[in-house]
């Protein structure tokens, strides 16, 4: 697995804790959304040490006010065709005003990276071959876009009228 964050290969300092394992005393961990719901009152870690793994069947609005408790939210792509996480990511950025890392996990496909990025996803778990096959180039395949999204890049209708 290769982690790419903000367009660069990065190392993963988060530990991803299974529901059956105890939480370590310190260090950055992610837990499942279900565990968060059942243990939220007893969890005292700050956002820099707490992340949550969001299944793609959960309405992102349900994260709502909790978003500030997390430093990382992972969103899941079970396969190339299941695009629910795109909406989740956008809602997390636009409505929950989530500023932490949103990481795509699961079946993350090269040719979808730029869609994901535009929806506000800033980190990706990629297969090893991503390095040899230069997957990062996919992040800049387009520099023109027909619609606004969660990235700050201009979009064409605005550019036409000379605004960004």
């Amino acid at each position: 697995m290769v982690l790419v964050k903000n367009g660069q290969v990065a190392s993963d300092y988060w530990q991803h804790i299974e529901d059956t394992d105890p939480l370590p005393q310190a260090g950055a961990v992610t837990i499942s959304w279900a565990r968060w719901l059942s243990e939220r009152d007893s969890i005292t870690r700050g956002p820099s040490e707490l992340g949550v793994r969001l299944p793609n069947t959960i309405a992102a609005d349900d994260v709502g006010a909790d978003a500030g408790r997390f430093g990382l939210i992972t969103v899941t792509y079970p396969n190339i065709g299941d695009g629910r996480a795109y909406s989740q990511a956008r809602i997390l950025r636009s409505r929950a005003a989530f500023k932490g890392e949103i990481r795509a996990i699961g079946s993350v496909v090269r040719d979808q990276l730029q869609f994901m990025q535009r929806c506000g996803i800033d980190a990706f778990e990629l297969p090893e071959k991503a390095l040899t096959e230069d997957w990062l180039a996919a992040l800049s395949e387009f520099d023109l876009f027909y619609q606004p999204a969660e990235d700050s890049r201009p979009w064409i209708a605005r550019q036409r009228h000379g605004r960004n």
């Binding site: 190339i80 695009g83 956008r90 979808q112 869609f115 619609q147 064409i156």
Partner: peptide, 13 residues
């Protein structure tokens, strides 16, 4: 047409 072209959220419905 323009809005829907490579829409990042709605290309994998």
């Amino acid at each position: 047409r323009q809005w829907s072209t490579l829409h990042p959220e709605f290309s994998w419905l």
